[in-house]
């Protein structure tokens, strides 16, 4: 009995101590709640599993099963080899990676510098600038005027059109600023006494202490760049320049119309036999980078985002 308990505790983590005043929960209620949580997790994971499985199944099996597979009998990476051997998907994947890396760097730079300036209490322009920034949250400019600005700057058909218009997110900026403000004031005072300038304080003291929030905000930006498809459709007339999500969007919308037939986007990768397999492989390729980074950043969520969002 005790042995079982320790095993369970090892698996689940230490049992939370129930204070003496708290009633013993009814086992049926507990069981009902547990079932609910399992069902919720299944609702999230099963669709993802179906997509991964279908992408790994052989075209014949997918066709025989009517378009989807839950557990492939003979898993194969053929679909991945095909879509990654050059052609539209490979090219758009490279575009996506480039935009995500450059965009995240640009966004973090702009967000950190402005958040830092707006977090320093003795900065005389702090209040007017902050109001100016927050007002944009209340009244976003709208799609068409935004398009006209991009056009006016000559950024149409340039990759910068996918980065610059969304470079700084007000919400992320506020979180970052809140985090900077939450750092102990003594650090700043000590640095000033040592004669350090603002730049030194930012680079040597603030940034090393802000790794968690930078990681989380960086993830938000990276996911945003990786996932966006509309700005590509809006600003890049030349569809051969499109990032992965924009290409995948043609698969999703046209695939729906064609009832699962092959699409223009995939045709030059030689996908004809079982488009479903290729579509799902493309979906998985678009998801995998997120799945890879996600666990590393996830542990920071509570630390970084919340201290910033709630406390500030």
């Amino acid at each position: 009995m005790s042995n079982r308990n320790t095993l369970l505790d090892k698996a689940l983590g230490p049992r939370e101590h129930r204070p003496s005043w708290m009633e013993k929960p009814h086992p049926l209620t507990q069981a009902g709640k547990a079932v609910a949580l399992v069902v919720i997790c299944a609702l999230i994971l099963v669709p993802i599993l179906v997509v991964v499985s279908t992408s790994l199944a052989s075209p014949a099996e997918v066709t025989a099963n009517g378009g989807w597979v839950l557990f492939p009998t003979e898993p194969t990476l053929q679909a991945y080899q095909d879509i990654l051997s050059g052609g539209t998907i490979t090219r758009s994947l490279a575009v996506s990676v480039g935009i995500t890396v450059v965009g995240t760097a640009v966004s973090l730079f702009g967000t950190i510098t402005l958040a830092y300036a707006l977090s320093r209490e003795h900065f005389s322009l702090r209040k007017p600038l902050l109001l100016m920034v927050l007002f944009t949250f209340l009244f976003p400019p709208g799609m068409l005027p935004g398009y006209l600005v991009v056009k006016g700057l000559g950024l149409l058909d340039s990759y910068w059109a996918l980065i610059l218009p969304v470079a700084i997110n007000v919400f992320n900026l506020v979180i970052m600023r809140g985090f900077f403000q939450g750092l102990p004031q003594e650090l700043y005072d000590a640095a000033r006494i040592d004669g350090a300038g603002e730049l030194t304080v930012l680079l040597r003291i603030v940034l090393p202490l802000s790794k968690a929030v930078i990681a989380v905000i960086g993830l938000f930006y990276a996911v945003g760049y990786w996932n966006s498809f509309f700005s590509a459709i809006l600003y890049l007339n030349d569809s051969s320049k499109w990032p992965l999500q924009a290409v995948l969007q043609t698969v999703v919308t046209k695939g729906a119309n064609l009832g699962g037939n092959t699409t223009d986007a995939l045709s030059d990768s030689g996908a004809v036999a079982a488009p479903q397999t290729y579509q799902m492989a493309t979906v998985v390729v678009a998801v995998i980078p997120i799945l890879i980074i996600y666990p590393f950043i996830q542990k920071y969520f509570t630390k970084g985002v919340l201290t910033g969002a709630i406390k500030s």
Binding site: F109, M132, T136, G142, P145, L148, L164, E198, L199
Partner: peptide, 19 residues
């Protein structure tokens, strides 16, 4: 330090708002 961020908001929000 504030200049790049403020420039962003001026161009892509305020100029656009004017649009």
């Amino acid at each position: 330090l504030a200049v790049p961020g403020i420039a962003y908001f001026l161009v892509f929000h305020y100029a656009a708002l004017f649009g």
